[in-house]
């Protein structure tokens, strides 16, 4: 038993632990998601995050220890943002043909998502540091962190809000669109990319090819527009 404890203490402190735990949990959550016919509530990111958070809490593992391994996955967010050039390039004819409608929808929708978050939070009496971290919540995590830093928010918190926003979108969008009905896969996908960034777009890609294409397009546009506009708008206040 003593040996076992020592072994755990050793292993849990190496980067191997965070990386293995993340990948294994995600693969299991993905299998569960497919078992459940990709039901929105079975979202793999949701269950992976919950399981890992519980695991760290139960085993008293500090987050930095976990992150020393998980950072190898986290790092890939940068190249993944760069790789959004690919869906933009692939759909360049649609992008050019429908440039105005898409641009207007991305601008109006993105402003609504970020603006309403700040307004509602302000109305509910949340402190300014939280407001600054909430503003970029509909932007994909790594970019949201950069924007929050410029705004004087807390980057790590902004990233958590971005992930939670993505989860809300990925889990509830289907029910919302079905209830307010009829929306085409293109409209659904684009809205998910604008309002629920990478996690919403990932859901759209799994559900329908058109929805996925428009979600990726929205994601690329959203990243560019928000990193240009949010700091400009924030300077007005």
């Amino acid at each position: 038993m003593q040996d076992f404890v020592q072994l755990w203490v050793y292993l849990s402190a190496t980067p191997l632990f965070g990386l293995t735990a993340t990948l294994v949990t995600y693969v299991l959550a993905q299998a569960f998601y497919h078992q459940m016919q990709q039901a929105p509530w079975a979202n793999p990111v949701l269950w992976t995050v919950l399981t890992l958070a519980l695991l760290l809490w139960v085993s008293h593992t500090p987050y930095p220890t976990y992150f020393s391994g998980a950072q190898f996955i986290h790092f890939l967010l940068g190249p993944a943002v760069v790789s959004l050039a690919w869906p933009l390039w692939q759909r360049r004819t649609q992008l050019v043909d429908r440039f105005r409608p898409l641009l207007v929808a991305a601008l109006v929708g993105g402003t609504t998502a970020g603006g309403s978050a700040v307004l509602i939070a302000w109305a509910l009496g949340l402190p300014p540091s939280l407001l600054r971290s909430l503003a970029p919540k509909s932007v994909t995590a790594p970019v949201a962190m950069g924007i929050a830093e410029q705004l004087g928010g807390v980057p790590a918190l902004a990233a958590v809000f971005a992930v939670l926003t993505g989860l809300v979108g990925a889990i509830s969008a289907k029910y919302l669109f079905d209830a307010l009905g009829p929306f085409t896969p293109c409209e659904r996908g684009f809205a998910l990319g604008v309002s629920a960034h990478g996690i919403g777009a990932a859901r759209a890609m799994q559900v329908h090819p058109d929805a996925g294409a428009y979600a990726a397009l929205a994601l690329g546009m959203q990243v560019i527009l928000s990193s240009l506009l949010i700091p400009l708008i924030a300077r007005l206040f």
């Binding site: 990111v45 998980a70 690919w86 692939q90 958590v160 939670l164 993505g166």
Partner: peptide, 27 residues
């Protein structure tokens, strides 16, 4: 080559958010 790499990265895009998401426990 970029197309091939982008397909791999973007098809597992949601995995990349897990480390940051787990950071919720620090808040």
């Amino acid at each position: 080559p970029v197309g091939a790499a982008a397909e791999v990265l973007l098809s597992h895009f949601s995995l990349l958010f897990v480390p940051v998401g787990v950071g919720v426990i620090t808040h």
